[in-house]
């Protein structure tokens, strides 16, 4: 049983519009049987934070192509992308590079 973890989420480049224009979110993920990974985080964001048009943020299991993901200021491609296991106090940033956000 993994303990609940507190993480910091940040949305930029227009992605914040889908979250009522709020750029920074401090959230606590509830405890669950297995450790949290990014894939589960995306599901959690979709259910708990996203305010509108979920298809403009998540597509399939992953984020919409064109949205950059940084884990603790490093490219998520270096961290294992969806399989990265979240640690307490991690900083996850989503930046849209798409035209118009």
């Amino acid at each position: 049983m993994a303990a609940p973890i507190a993480i910091h989420l940040e949305f930029g480049g227009g992605a914040e519009l889908l979250f009522d224009g709020v750029k920074e979110h401090h959230v606590t993920l509830p405890s669950q049987s297995e450790p949290w990974d990014v894939k589960q985080l995306l599901v959690w964001i979709r259910e708990n934070l996203l305010k509108e048009r979920p298809e403009l943020f998540v597509q399939g299991d992953s984020v919409r192509p064109g949205i950059l993901v940084l884990i603790n200021d490093a490219d998520w491609e270096l961290m294992g992308e969806l399989e990265y296991q979240l640690q307490d106090q991690d900083n996850i940033v989503f930046i849209s590079t798409l035209h118009g956000g």
């Binding site: 930029g12 480049g13 227009g14 914040e16 519009l17 889908l18 509108e52 048009r53 403009l56 950059l68 940084l70 200021d73 490219d75 940033v93 930046i95 035209h99 118009g100 956000g101």
Partner: peptide, 19 residues
Amino acid sequence: FYNRLFEVQSVFIPGLDTK
């Protein structure tokens, strides 16, 4: 990445194709 890592300020302004 450059803008994020080296704090280049940009301003998000909704355009015709936003959302």
